[in-house]
């Protein structure tokens, strides 16, 4: 009894946190559209390394650019590209997994060996190699992330489909004369959404970390793009004199990753409620 009570308490806490995060994100969006008055790449050497003031709430960096503006616009780059990479990985992985799992047999074996081959690349190495081949840049980083991440979705979806495929309702769908496409889309897909959403929201944090860390070592977004990892890198020489230049982008990364993990936990709790247990 006590555990279920504390569980529901934790659930409510997470809910409040998530709603809070949504409010903050909405606030940021409104602020960015309505209030933002600085050009993120406008260089003003007379105002370099200013401390926080009303004019510049988080101060200015070594080229006199407004830090708050750059962090807010950086969210579009870091989080935006993170989302895009995630969407592409899901869009490739989910159909691949459904198809392999549903077809079974030799098709399944061939497709999953292909997936295994992709799985054997560590993400950082793929990103470094691709940057070497295609040149550094956030688009190439995006390609590298999709290449590494789609396999997880394919494997997750496939394993769920393999279990569901054996059940009577799929047999009945075959007897009812439904086409394979219809069975996959209408009958199997609803069983996967929960799993995919949970993995995706947990992955978002990892992808954002990857984008930032690779941008930090110079393989992702290139200056003057206001990417958080790149901002950290640019602020490095001034760490001793103006440490907040590194603290603020770092905080931005930590916050987003934390909330994406919380969202993942929340969704996992939510979808764990098994309707089908009769």
């Amino acid at each position: 009894m006590e555990t279920s009570e504390s569980n529901s308490y934790r659930m409510r806490f997470k809910k409040i946190l998530l709603i809070g995060a949504l409010v903050v994100i909405a606030g940021i969006a409104v602020y960015t559209f309505l209030v933002l008055k600085y050009d993120p790449s406008f260089v003003n050497l007379e105002e370099r390394l200013l401390p926080a003031s009303l004019e510049h709430p988080l101060g200015t960096d070594h080229l006199g650019r407004d830090v708050l503006t750059r962090i807010l616009l950086g969210s579009q780059l870091t989080v935006g590209y993170g989302f895009l990479a995630l969407l592409l990985a899901v869009a490739i992985g989910v159909p691949f997994g459904i198809f392999a799992g549903f077809k079974g047999g030799i098709v399944d074996r061939i497709l999953m060996r292909i997936a295994d081959a992709f799985l054997s690349f560590p993400d950082t190495i793929v990103a470094i190699v691709l940057s070497g081949l295609l040149g550094a840049g956030i688009e190439n980083l995006l390609i590298a992330i999709v290449i590494v991440k789609w396999v997880n979705y394919a494997r997750l979806v496939r394993s769920t489909v393999v279990v569901e495929r054996q059940k009577d309702y799929i047999t009945m769908a075959k007897i009812n004369g439904l086409s394979e496409r219809r069975i996959m889309v209408k009958h199997l897909f609803p069983h996967l959404i929960g799993h995919v959403l949970v993995l995706a929201s947990l992955d978002l944090g990892k992808i954002i970390l990857l984008i930032s860390s690779l941008s930090y070592i110079g393989l992702g977004a290139q200056p003057p793009a206001p990417e958080w990892g790149a901002m950290l890198n640019e602020a490095r020489p001034y760490f001793q004199s103006v440490p907040e230049l590194m603290v603020f982008p770092g905080l931005a990364i930590v916050t987003v990753v934390l909330f994406s993990n919380l969202l993942g936990d929340f969704l996992r709790d939510k979808f764990d409620v098994k309707k089908e247990v009769a």
Partner: peptide, 13 residues
């Protein structure tokens, strides 16, 4: 019509 009606219907639909 199969033996087990619970598993013959998709629980998500």
């Amino acid at each position: 019509v199969l033996q087990n009606p619970s598993s013959s219907l998709n629980p998500k639909l």
